[in-house]
Amino acid sequence: MKFTLMTGTAMAVALSATVVTTATAQDRDGWPDSFTVGTASQGGTYFAYGSGWANLVAEELGLSGGGEVTGGPMQNMALVHTGDAQFGMTTMGPAAESLAGTNPIAPGLQMDNACAMFPMYQTPFSVTALSSSGIASIADIPDGAKIGFGPAGSTSDTYFPRMMEALGVNFERRNGGWSDLGGQLQDGLLDVIAFAAGVPVPAVSQLEVQTDINIIEFTEEEQAKIMADFPVSEFSIGAGTYSTLEADARSVSMWNFAIANCDLPASFVKAATDVVMSDNARMVGIHKAARSTLPENWDKNKVLKWHPGAAEWFKENAGADIPDDMIHGM
C-alpha cells in the first residue's frame, strides 16, 4: 500500500512537470533563439545600460542575447524597424523623426515597425571642457571651437549642434564614440564635448579621474530658449552625479525608451519587459540612470505605438491607461 502511494505521488509530480513544460512551450511559441539590443558607442550610457539589460533578459529567459554597438537612437530605430535587431533604445526626438520619414539613415522611410517597450530614463544635455581651457560657460566657448557631438546620427549629434547654433555658438563639428572623444579632449584635439547621454556618462567619469574638468551648465535664459525651440524638458544634473560637481547643474533632457520590433511575439516582449521592470534595484545595479526605469513612467511616451506585449504588461502591473489607437495592430 505504501508503495502504491509513493508511485501515485511520483506520477502526480511527473504529470505536473509535464503540464508546466507544455505550458512554457506554448507560451514561447514563435520566440527567437537569440536576440540583440541596439545600443550606441562604447563609453556612453546606452552601451552600458543596454548591454546590461540585454544580458539580464538573456539570463532570466534562458536565451542567447546581448548588446550591439550601433550609431545610437537613429540607427536603432532603423535596425528595429527592419528586424535586424529585435530590441533597441531611442529617444523621443529621433523616434518622432523616424516615424515622420526624416531619419537621415533612410530619408523618406516611415519607420513605424518599431514599438515602445518600456521607459528607460531622461537624457540630459551637458557640456564638458578641460578646466585648463578656461571654458566655464557657454559664452566662454571660443569662435570656431572644435566640439565633439558624439556618434553621427546619435541624439547628441542630431540636436546639440542645433542647440549650440541657437545659442549663438560658432563651431567646428566633430563626431566619434564618447570614449574616443574623451581622449581627444584630454589630448587637446577638442575644445568641448557636448554630451547627450544618461548620467553619469562613463566617459566623463573617466575624464574627471584623469584630469580637471568643467561640467558647464546652461544659464536660465539659455535653458528657456532651448526648451522653447526643441522637444526637451527642464532637468538638473545632481551634484552627487560627478565628483567635479559641487552643486546641481542646470540642463535640459529628452526621454529614452526601449523599443521592440512590432512583429515579435507578444508573450516574448511581455516576458522581457517583466524581467526589466519587475526589479528596479537590479537595474540600478547595472546603471544609475535606471533609477527612472519605473512602471509609472510609461506615460512619458507620446510618440511611438506600444508593442501589444509591453502594453499588456503595463496595463496589468502599472494600471496604464493606454488607448487602443496607441497599441500596434489595434
Rank of each mutant, 00 (worst) to 15 (best):
F3Y: 01
T9I: 14
M11L: 13
S16T: 13
V20G: 05
T21R: 12
A23W: 07
R28H: 12
R28Q: 15
D29G: 11
D33W: 05
T36K: 04
G44L: 01
F47G: 02
Y49C: 14
E60W: 02
S64R: 13
G65M: 07
G67Q: 07
E68G: 00
V69L: 01
V69G: 00
T70I: 00
P73T: 08
P73M: 04
M74N: 13
A78P: 03
T82E: 12
M89Q: 11
T90N: 09
T91C: 12
M92K: 05
M92Y: 01
M92F: 01
P94A: 05
T102D: 12
T102L: 02
I105M: 12
M111C: 09
N113M: 09
N113Q: 12
A114Q: 05
M120E: 13
Q122V: 00
T123H: 07
P124G: 08
V127C: 04
S133E: 06
G134D: 05
A139D: 15
D140G: 13
G144E: 01
F149P: 10
A152N: 06
A152K: 08
G153F: 07
L167E: 03
V169S: 08
N170L: 06
F171M: 11
R174N: 15
G176A: 15
G177Y: 08
G177T: 06
D180P: 01
G182P: 09
Q186C: 03
V192T: 07
A197L: 04
A203C: 05
V204R: 05
V204G: 07
V204T: 15
V209Q: 14
I215R: 11
E221G: 02
E222V: 12
A224W: 06
K225P: 00
D229N: 11
S233R: 01
E234I: 03
E234P: 05
S236N: 03
S236K: 04
G238V: 11
L245D: 02
W255D: 02
C262G: 13
V276E: 02
A281Y: 05
I286A: 02
K288H: 10
E296D: 11
D299T: 00
D299P: 00
K300I: 03
K305C: 09
H307Y: 06
A311Y: 07
E316K: 07
M330I: 03
M330T: 05
